[in-house]
Amino acid sequence: MSLTDWSLLSLLSSSIEQCKSIEFMPLTSNDEYIVYCYCEENIYLCLNLFEIKSIVKLCYSFIFSKDYQEYNQLNILTRVLLCYVTECLTSWNIRRRLVLSGTINIQKELQFLDILLNLKPKSEQLFRYRRWILKQENIQKISINKELEICDRTAEKHFINYASWLYRRWIINYLNINIDEELERNRLWLEKNLSDSSAFSFRAYLLSKKNLNENIIEHELKLNENMLKFYYDRESLWIYRQTLIFLTIKFLSIDKKQLLNKELDLVKTFEENFFSNKYARLLNILLSSDGKQFRN
């Protein structure tokens, strides 16, 4: 731990917001100097993949030392560390204390998280921390569009992103977002990302928050059927159909037998494949046993 080390970390910290995103790259060092990072076209801050361990060790040694406990020093150190080890809960906790003490500005912190989410779009701790931060902020100052954009972006960057869709569920509840508008946004998103079961699971969640009636379900089944006509080989569409049937049986008092038979007839209209066979098998089991005896 030397002054040079400290300057290096300060420099890394101040580089973060200069770029839109962070990437790890193998960069070439030589005997005279080590390359820690460089900025490409003002878009990517490229961190040297080979220097991860040395930087992490350096950050830890400062963070847990007696001499670098001033708030602004801890701020710099944890910012750098979290770029390298995003799941480090202890560092996020240090930042939580810095937020409570007023050292960290909430809007600036949201910007920092925004950049980190490009590097780690499925980081559980990042989303947990962002939720916590928003709870500290005046709700009027939270941008709904920004939060929804973050959800869209992280969900696109990482397919079937559990943490991102969980965050979206929280956002629509916390910011009281209109369910019908959200259903429409979801429909448009799914048009471009058809094979994303998490997005369909989220859609079913939205439906379950509405006052369900037969018209809504009917409409939804029709929507799914139309998609299946073109993409009958996508597992996500079949699983979503299955979910809709479960939802119907659970929440609506309908003639179950009639519903299941209608579904079986529909399956026959599609070209047979692995998923349609599975779906038909499930329907038959539900029909024959009232769901009490099934086994595959």
């Binding site: 079937i160 599975k278 769901g291 086994r295």
Partner: peptide, 29 residues
């Protein structure tokens, strides 16, 4: 209840993939 146990059992064994024989944690993974 009995039907929940069966549905859950179904959900879980659907995690086995046909070709590799391995298990995933959610559909399409």
């Amino acid at each position: 209840d009995l039907s929940t146990r069966n549905m859950l059992g179904w959900w879980l064994c659907e995690r086995q993939l046909d070709k590799s024989g391995g298990l995933n944690g959610r559909p399409e993974k």
